[in-house]
Amino acid sequence: MTSRVILISAAISEALREARFDDGSPVDASGLRAARAAADAGTVPVGGHLWVSPTVRCRQTAEALGLEGAVEATELAPLDVGRWRGATLAEVSAKEPEAVGRWLADPTSAPHDGESVRAFCDRVAEHLDAAAGQDGRTVAVVEPEVVRALVVRVLAAPETAFWRVDVPPLTVTELSGRAGRWNVRAGRPLVGPT
């Protein structure tokens, strides 16, 4: 049995534009326009199973894309950055430069009292393993770091590679596989510039 998981990264938000750790901010107006344009163009993949990360931005993106009935998958929640939530990377780097350096270099580190990159990758990979048992196609609207974590895991890359994977808004990453062996097709935009 071959499983196909199609990950759609959420539309742009103010937090993403500002390089701010997500604080529950919604999709901004340009992100909504782009998602609706993709829905209107008919370029949104469909699947028998629909999942959505439990963030405002992902739920709004799924709605704008016309993906009704998506099941909230708490296992696909974004990386928990603890007390850094809502701050910009520049702000945190100015206050806690050693902690940021440790966090970026060591996947087991969680100086923000949240989740380490390793624990995050493990969590989302477990959810992917569950998807492998489902026949057919699954579509999930997720935060960019969820895509990063899954790409790292399916390629068996070291967790330090997490920071080397760029995931633009409203792009599609496809994972297909069976028996624990996945292939990756990354970076297809849903729609051109609006």
Rank of each mutant, 00 (worst) to 15 (best):
residue 161 A to T: 15
residue 122 D to T: 13
residue 172 V to T: 13
residue 144 P to T: 04
residue 132 A to G: 15
residue 152 V to P: 00
residue 119 A to W: 03
residue 185 R to I: 10
residue 159 E to Y: 07
residue 162 F to H: 00
residue 125 A to H: 11
residue 164 R to Q: 14
residue 127 H to S: 15
residue 122 D to K: 04
residue 140 A to K: 07
residue 164 R to P: 00
residue 175 L to A: 09
residue 145 E to S: 01
residue 159 E to F: 01
residue 164 R to F: 03
residue 153 R to T: 04
residue 154 V to S: 10
residue 124 V to P: 04
residue 148 R to H: 01
residue 152 V to L: 00
residue 163 W to S: 05
residue 129 D to P: 02
residue 189 P to C: 07
residue 147 V to K: 01
residue 168 P to F: 07
residue 178 R to M: 10
residue 159 E to M: 02
residue 127 H to N: 03
residue 189 P to G: 03
residue 187 G to A: 07
residue 176 S to Y: 04
residue 170 L to V: 09
residue 126 E to N: 04
residue 119 A to E: 13
residue 180 G to T: 07
residue 173 T to L: 10
residue 168 P to T: 10
residue 182 W to L: 12
residue 160 T to Y: 00
residue 150 L to D: 00
residue 163 W to K: 05
residue 162 F to C: 00
residue 188 R to F: 05
residue 150 L to C: 13
residue 164 R to C: 11
residue 178 R to S: 15
residue 179 A to W: 06
residue 153 R to Y: 01
residue 183 N to S: 15
residue 125 A to K: 00
residue 132 A to W: 12
residue 164 R to E: 15
residue 181 R to K: 05
residue 176 S to D: 13
residue 178 R to N: 08
residue 186 A to F: 05
residue 133 G to C: 09
residue 187 G to I: 11
residue 123 R to K: 06
residue 141 V to C: 08
residue 183 N to A: 15
residue 148 R to F: 03
residue 130 A to K: 11
residue 187 G to W: 03
residue 119 A to S: 14
residue 121 C to L: 09
residue 187 G to L: 03
residue 184 V to D: 04
residue 120 F to Q: 06
residue 165 V to M: 02
residue 155 L to V: 05
residue 128 L to Y: 01
residue 143 E to L: 12
residue 119 A to D: 12
residue 165 V to T: 03
residue 135 D to M: 11
residue 147 V to W: 03
residue 167 V to F: 08
residue 150 L to A: 08
residue 123 R to I: 07
residue 160 T to K: 00
residue 174 E to S: 14
residue 175 L to W: 09
residue 152 V to S: 01
residue 126 E to G: 13
residue 178 R to W: 08
residue 161 A to N: 07
residue 163 W to Q: 05
residue 141 V to L: 11
residue 159 E to D: 13
residue 140 A to D: 05
residue 168 P to D: 10
residue 180 G to Y: 08
residue 175 L to P: 03
residue 160 T to M: 01
residue 174 E to I: 15
residue 127 H to P: 01
residue 169 P to T: 04
residue 166 D to V: 14
residue 124 V to T: 11
residue 129 D to C: 09
residue 148 R to Q: 13
residue 122 D to C: 05
residue 126 E to W: 09
residue 155 L to P: 01
residue 175 L to H: 10
residue 184 V to L: 15
residue 184 V to A: 12
residue 158 P to S: 12
residue 141 V to T: 11
residue 153 R to M: 01
residue 174 E to V: 15
residue 131 A to I: 10
residue 152 V to Y: 00
residue 121 C to P: 06
residue 132 A to I: 10
residue 130 A to H: 12
